[in-house]
Design a protein around this nucleic acid. Structure first.
Lengths: 122, 122
DNA sequence: ATAACGCATGAACAGTTGTTCATACGTTTA
DNA sequence: TAAACGTATGAACAACTGTTCATGCGTTAT
């Protein structure tokens, strides 16, 4: 990892500070880039429109205008959000004539959303 | 759910549109408020500083100045982020004298982060 | 009491995000 | 080829987010 990102020595005089503990956490911290990418992934789930799109695709593959009709939103807005979901490899698509059908990329998506729901319902 | 949030009938002339499919997705869609809360939860994971804090707490409970030292950030910034994590019930805390020790609220947190990492490493 | 320490909080700022609007692209049909 | 349709994209705007700075609160030690 990028060691410069983290200070190896605590800089406060807090008597409860345990330098070895900080060193351990420092050691086990994933690489800066990995942490950034992970946050970026969750950012994608952090919008209710995109969550709705994913829930819609739980049902079956859908074309853009289907999703727009279902969510009562403009085609443009849905297309923009599908682009984000596509970039994070959360959805895939196939063309059929003029229409483009979107579907979930894999089962991970559902698992992640279910985990969040579980946390909410505790 | 709040039925007014979704249009029950598709408004495009797309020949691939399946009204019954949209009706099904409409039926299975969780309540608007639930979807909003779920997005809010993921928004909390959608920041690398907060991700780092959670990873730090995987190791052990820590006081604010420990975390600030580990991440090489100001105490204020960490405190603000801990507030967000606290509000989402992702971390809990206990006071010991002047220091306040934060720790993970439950195992859900780790599971959710691990799921994200798995998706990234595919 | 009063000073010192650890932490929380409000205001303010720059940077980011989601939607709308207008328009362009790719495919199909006439 | 030209028109129609489904979708993608760029610009622009308001709304939101994370950090910093200054300051205040609660606890402990002198």
């Amino acid at each position: 990892m990028d060691l410069d990102q983290f200070s190896p020595v605590p800089r406060c005089d807090c008597p409860h500070t345990h330098p070895s503990l900080i060193a351990d956490a420092h050691q086990d911290m994933p690489a800066e880039e990995m942490l950034y990418d992970l946050a970026e992934l969750y950012k994608v789930f952090g919008d209710s429109t995109r969550i709705k799109i994913l829930y819609a695709l739980f049902e079956a593959e859908m074309c853009v205008c289907d999703i727009a009709a279902l969510l009562n939103m403009t085609q443009s807005a849905i297309s923009h959000q599908l682009r984000v979901l596509k970039q994070s490899k959360l959805v895939k698509f196939r063309r059929e004539g003029k229409a483009i059908f979107y579907s979930l990329a894999d089962d991970h998506v559902r698992t992640i959303i279910d985990m969040g729901m579980e946390h909410l319902c505790e």
